[in-house]
C-alpha cells in the first residue's frame, strides 16, 4: 500500500526539496513513523510529545485528521495526506 504525502515548503529540507513523497502505514501514526525512517528528522517536526504539533495541520483527502481520530486515523491505499502549517485567515 502507498499513501501520497504533500509536504509544505518549510519542511522540504527533509525531503530533498520534494513536494510530494510516498509512504506507508495503516494509521497516521504508522505513516509518520515510516516518513521519519525515509526522511530522518521529519517526524519530530510533526509531533511533539507523541501528539500533532499545535501549528501543524494534517488532512486526509482534504479532511482535518483531528476530526477523524487524530494519529489513529486509518489510512488505505491511494489516500492523499496533506501537511500544512496553521496560518491566519480573516
Amino acid at each position: 500500500m502507498s499513501v501520497s504525502v504533500s509536504i509544505p515548503t518549510i519542511l522540504r529540507t527533509y525531503t530533498d526539496g520534494a513536494k510530494r513523497v510516498e509512504a506507508e502505514g495503516t494509521t497516521l501514526a504508522a505513516l509518520i513513523t515510516d516518513l521519519d525512517t525515509r526522511h530522518p528528522g521529519l517526524g519530530d517536526r510533526l509531533l511533539d510529545a507523541g501528539e500533532l504539533r499545535r501549528f501543524v495541520n494534517v488532512y486526509k483527502n482534504d479532511e482535518d485528521v483531528r476530526f477523524l481520530g487524530g494519529l489513529s486515523t486509518p489510512l488505505t491505499d491511494g489516500d492523499a495526506v496533506t501537511v500544512l502549517p496553521a496560518v491566519a485567515g480573516g
Binding site: 509544505p8 515548503t9 518549510i10 519542511l11 517536526r45 504539533r53 499545535r54 501549528f55 501543524v56 495541520n57 488532512y59 482534504d62 479532511e63 482535518d64 483531528r66 476530526f67 477523524l68 496533506t82 500544512l84 502549517p85 496553521a86 496560518v87 491566519a88 480573516g90
Partner: peptide
C-alpha cells in the same frame, strides 16, 4: 505556497477564538 511562507513552524497561528469542540469536522 507563498502564503505559507513561514520561517519555521513555531510561527504558525491559530486564532485565540478557535475551539475545536464546536466543530463536527473541517475541510481544506
Amino acid at each position: 505556497e507563498l502564503i505559507y511562507g513561514l520561517r519555521n513552524l513555531d510561527e504558525g497561528f491559530v486564532p485565540e477564538l478557535y475551539d475545536e469542540s464546536v466543530l463536527t469536522t473541517r475541510y481544506s
